[in-house]
Design a binder for these strands. Structure first.
Lengths: 245, 245
DNA sequence: AATAACAAACGTTTAAATGACGTTTATTAA
DNA sequence: TTAATAAACGTCATTTAAACGTTTGTTATT
């Protein structure tokens, strides 16, 4: 089933996971570790995105989905191809060259970068063969290759996009409270929002459906739960051409 | 100076040129023409975007700029890398295979697609070695490869982007009238805008600077000219986080 | 030199959305 | 019972948007 890979082409996946409890947007990273042959020295010890070369008979989108599935087991998440990175010097620092040597990659590799949106809780990191871990986007560890740049550009695109499309709901559980939506916006955009105004605005949207359910197990007044209806959103949605420059 | 090309990697450039007079958004296309050996038959006769393989020591951005320069002589235009196209079957229809054979390209070629924004009038098409011509985006000729898809995705991105960023001014002359701006929005977005409201809204922007000049050579009341100040726009601009979903 | 034609430019009114707050309510923990 | 607290509701002033009507300045025509 597996066919030849295209040596100088890869996909890299920025897997964003939002944690409703800690109100933190995280990125899923894997450990990169390399010792010298006599094991006296640690040559590479940092983190990178998951990615892999594209197979000869595979679409770019499928390559990205394949990588996500290997990493998380998930296949149906929100996905966006947001940028290609292919400068000739993108993989030329000492550690990366060592690593590439080790892994027998080409030096000049163009990578098509995707980001995925999901809930941190949807990924089971136990038994993960890559030793993948979540890191807050606002507190990333040392990253290999140009992956810090890739993550930051993905994050920038996400911030822009969540202002004009309802992708925030890709990051939240199916049933959520109004305050959870507000927290997500605040955390991702790095802003403060007035709760009373936000609440009014959101509740008035026809695609925010109130449920006959409340939170339970909380130690204060339990909040009402809502869901987002993609159906309603898409049907009622005649693109409002508000020129906002 | 020219180094080896990367066989399976190219850039393709969607050159958008707006014509203030005809109020038309155009794309710059080049002719593709191929006869059978005995010249009895026309094998390929359509249009394509300009693009070219990326050189080994060249950034993707520079490759795109190089292609634009070869085609138009211009180098400082608004540029955006908007998507990579690399499905294995993207170049597999009969004509394209013929053409590829002829040009000795690889079959599976990933292309990094860019679009440029400029004024139709800024390009001198005389003496153009590619026989490039403008075509209205809303009335494209038959296109080779997957270039119709590429143009349409570029156009979609442009439409979205011109709602939230002042890129419309990349398409207009330095000195413009309010109505010219309105016409550009109407043509590109395919909408009607109330002139009186639009005018008021635009004139109130601090980065739309009224000039002490009027149109001349028009056969009606000449309109006041304005300019867009990128400086003012960027300085006064604290990103307004209006959540507009 | 008066006037018709017409786009440019200005103005008005109403409704809706936003921003900035204050108040009440439902629940848990003490 | 009551204190504490987050959830939920309410009010008002301001801004923005939508839908129109009116005046002005210029050129072309008489």
């Amino acid at each position: 089933m597996e066919s030849k890979i295209i040596q100088n082409l890869s996909v890299d996946c920025v897997v964003f996971g939002y944690d409703t409890n800690t109100k933190s947007l995280n990125a899923l990273l894997i450990k990169r570790y390399l010792e010298s042959e006599d094991k006296s020295e640690i040559l590479v010890d940092d983190h990178v995105l998951t990615g892999y070369h594209v197979y000869q008979d595979e679409t770019l989108d499928n390559a990205a989905t394949r990588v996500l599935k290997e990493l998380t087991g998930l296949t149906q998440q929100y996905k966006k191809q947001f940028k290609a990175f292919g400068d000739p010097d993108r993989l030329t620092n000492a550690k990366d060259l060592l690593w590439i040597e080790n892994e027998k990659f080409d030096k000049r590799t163009v990578t098509i970068a995707y980001y995925f949106l999901l809930k941190t809780e949807d990924v089971d990191l136990k038994n993960n063969k890559y030793d993948a871990k979540w890191f807050p986007v606002k507190d990333l560890p040392e990253l290999g290759f140009d992956h810090k740049q890739i993550i930051n550009e993905a994050y920038g695109d996400l911030k822009t996009k969540c202002l004009v499309e309802p992708i925030i709901f890709e990051l939240l559980p199916d049933k959520f409270t109004i305050n959870e939506v507000q927290d997500a916006y605040q955390s991702i955009l790095g802003i403060e929002i007035d709760n009373r105004n936000f609440r009014r605005k959101l509740i008035n949207k026809k695609y925010i459906i109130p449920l006959d359910e409340k939170q339970f197990g909380v130690s204060k007044k339990p909040a009402k739960l809502y869901m987002f209806s993609k159906d309603v959103y898409e049907k009622m949605f005649q693109k409002n051409y508000l020129i906002n420059i």
